[in-house]
């Protein structure tokens, strides 16, 4: 299959060889960096470097179509989506690297090195013949060759890939989309609910009719009763708030009623409003 994809003309073998070795070092270094860096964004960027190197190699092998697909689809679209997702999740998110099983990392590292050595030795010793000469039956462009394979030999797997895409879309819907169970309340519903609750206007904002500006003092309603909902539920509302006093000119305002006074060390601490 890649024989077809790679069918093309190699112009200058020395230049190609040189560029290959440069790119190979860059690609392997970037791939290693991808798994070693901690930040997900850096991983994605390293992956982009690997993909661009691969695209260049495809182009050098005489597969310009594959090279451009690699750049446009993978580097351009898929990887940018990766970046979007990472940005959405949070750019600072880093995986926990606590070893839950003791010595796991060491064992995994040794096993990985072992597999690497085994594969490197195996592939290094394998006698890989020279590349197949460009096949004349697909003409100069490899686009026709790919089309031929997709629509003749591999037409069934090509079509079945559709099932994979549908599964992916469906799965994303199942995992991420929350269906609204109750209908969304309209403005009319909200108005009806408010009328039915008996309190048509909202609670007075803190400070109106208030004697104190402490956050745990409930606001007072026009009739002088405390509005319990004006205190955050995490606080313990101080009860026994008195109705507003009428302070006549010349009179000294009566500071700090008997209730709750023991909770305040300084008498003037919570009564700024009354003093002013």
């Amino acid at each position: 299959m890649t024989g077809v994809l790679a069918a093309g003309t190699n112009t200058d073998s020395v230049a190609v060889e040189t560029v290959f070795w440069i790119l190979a070092v860059v690609a392997v270094a970037a791939a290693l960096a991808m798994i070693l860096v901690r930040r997900a964004v850096h991983c994605a960027i390293m992956l982009a470097v690997v993909m661009l190197c691969l695209a260049t190699m495809y182009a050098m092998q005489g597969a310009p179509f594959l090279a451009f697909v690699q750049i446009i689809v993978y580097t351009g679209a898929v990887l940018m989506l990766f970046l979007f997702v990472i940005m959405l999740i949070g750019i600072t998110a880093a995986d926990s690297i606590v070893e839950t099983i003791k010595g796991q990392r060491l064992a995994a590292g040794l096993a990985a090195i072992g597999l690497l050595v085994l594969l490197a030795l195996g592939i290094g010793h394998a006698a890989i013949g020279p590349a197949a000469p460009p096949s004349p039956k697909y003409g100069s462009g490899n686009l026709t060759g790919i089309a031929t394979l997709i629509f003749t030999t591999y037409v069934f797997p090509f079509e079945v890939t559709g099932a994979l895409l549908i599964t992916a879309a469906l799965g994303a819907m199942v995992l991420a989309h929350r269906e609204r169970i109750a209908p969304r309340p309209t403005q009319r519903d909200l108005a009806a609910r408010r009328l039915a609750s008996g309190q048509v206007v909202g609670d007075p904002p803190p400070g109106i009719y208030a004697l104190h500006d402490s956050a745990d003092r409930p606001a007072l309603l026009p009739d002088g009763s405390p509005a319990a909902s004006s205190v955050s539920s995490v606080l313990n509302p101080r009860t026994g708030t008195e109705p507003p006093q009428v302070v006549r000119p010349g009179e000294k305002p009566q500071l700090e009623a008997a209730d709750g006074g023991e909770r305040e060390p300084a008498p003037s601490a919570g009564s700024g409003r009354a003093e002013s």
Binding site: P157, V160, A163, L164, T167, G171
Partner: peptide, 25 residues
Amino acid sequence: AANDLLTMFVALEVLSLPLYLLCGL
């Protein structure tokens, strides 16, 4: 049924992906 490894790989993914999802439900 896949008679070449490419088809077999596609089939492997087609059978696995829904199972990964269903396991989490």
